[in-house]
């Protein structure tokens, strides 16, 4: 007796049909609930998707706005940089780390920038911005313009996409035509997620090929149907994950730039020195004082119609009082 006898003996052990039937009849634990479950899940998923999409839009705008306000509050009118001469210098020193170094390596970096800009010449600046966007092959994703109390207090919020390799140049050029009061450049490394997506695509493609190979050799109809079901699941997954990769590619190729543009009547040049601050505050106060008289005069003239009527009424009242006093005497 040797191992061949053993192999023969084991070969003869075959699971009895009755056992096979029992196993085949097994159902996944929550199978019966599935249809209801599926509908509920689908509806819930749709709902969640809508909510997320909506909150994404709203949250995005809100976030951008709150950041902008924070910048405004922080900077006020006092901490304005003049970009024409020293602003450009200070910008190149500011933390734009990672932009140039990142593009050199193979890492997948998503860059975003947020800029707050003040300008005296709103229309010229807006034209300049649009021109620069076009020049660098970018596009406007969203643009909102507000016009507050008067024509010299306009505000625009823009979401712009600029090819990642031209982001820095774009920002620098904006600084030349407007006054950048705050600038944030962020780099988000998505290499890990990206590699994950890539390998999933590879895996799914391999599986698709394998399944196609098996499908060619499949003989029974049930096998073919089962394989095709599996194949369509694989293909759907593949589509989904490919879309994800495309989204990543888009995010990497194009940097999102959020612009908050504010129209101001004047931009004060000042520096951090004592006299610079004195000059700045003095200028502000003188401006405010001038503004006060100017506003006062305007309001006075504007109120003329009322003043005339009031004066007339006063004259009539005085005349009557005088007449009454004379009679008394």
């Amino acid at each position: 007796m040797n191992k061949n006898d053993y192999i023969k003996a084991v070969d003869n052990i075959i699971a009895p049909q009755e056992l096979l039937d029992r196993i085949e009849a097994l159902e996944p634990p929550a199978k019966k609930k599935m249809p209801v479950w599926k509908t509920v899940t689908a509806v819930a998923a749709c709902f969640v998707a809508v909510v997320i999409a909506f909150s994404g839009i709203v949250g995005g705008t809100l976030k951008a706005e709150s950041e902008d306000y924070a910048v405004e509050d922080f900077n006020g009118n006092e901490v304005l940089f003049d970009t024409a001469d020293k602003g450009a210098g200070s910008l190149s020193e500011s933390p734009s780390v990672g932009i140039s170094s990142a593009s050199k390596t193979d890492r997948k970096i998503v860059k975003t920038a947020t800029l707050s800009i003040k300008t005296k010449n709103y229309d010229t600046f807006m034209n300049g911005v649009n021109q620069k966007i076009e020049q660098y092959g970018g596009y406007i994703e969203k643009s909102q313009e507000y016009n507050y109390d008067n024509a010299s207090n306009r505000n625009a919020n823009m979401d712009v996409k600029i090819p990642a390799d031209k982001l820095e140049k774009f920002i620098d050029e904006l600084a030349l035509i407007g006054t950048v009061t705050s600038k944030t450049v962020a780099s988000n490394d998505i290499t890990d997620s990206y590699i994950d997506v890539e390998s999933r695509i590879k895996a799914l493609e391999t599986e698709e090929k394998t399944l196609l190979g098996i499908l060619e050799k499949a003989e029974s109809l049930t096998d073919v149907i089962e394989l095709q079901q599996r194949l369509s699941t694989v293909r759907a997954d593949l589509e989904k994950i490919k879309a994800q990769k495309q989204a990543y590619d888009g995010m990497i190729a194009y940097s999102g730039v959020t612009l908050d543009i504010n129209e101001v009547e004047r931009v004060v040049e000042g520096d951090d020195s004592f006299w610079g601050e004195v000059k700045e505050k003095l200028m502000n106060n003188l401006y405010d004082l001038g503004d006060f008289f100017r506003e006062g005069t305007i309001n006075f003239i504007a109120a003329m119609p009322y003043i005339v009527i009031l004066a007339a009424v006063a004259v009539v009242v005085i005349v009557i009082i005088k007449k009454v006093r004379r009679r008394h005497r």
């Binding site: 052990i13 699971a15 056992l19 096979l20 029992r22 196993i23 097994l26």
Partner: peptide, 30 residues
């Protein structure tokens, strides 16, 4: 299925236990 059944038969005292175990394995898998 046969592999599972054969191993079960090697490690249990009788056919009925082997069958039970085989079925349990598939339930576990599900």
């Amino acid at each position: 299925t046969d592999t599972v059944y054969r191993i079960a038969l090697h490690n249990t005292a009788n056919f009925s236990d082997a069958e039970d175990v085989t079925q349990e394995v598939f339930i576990k898998l599900l």
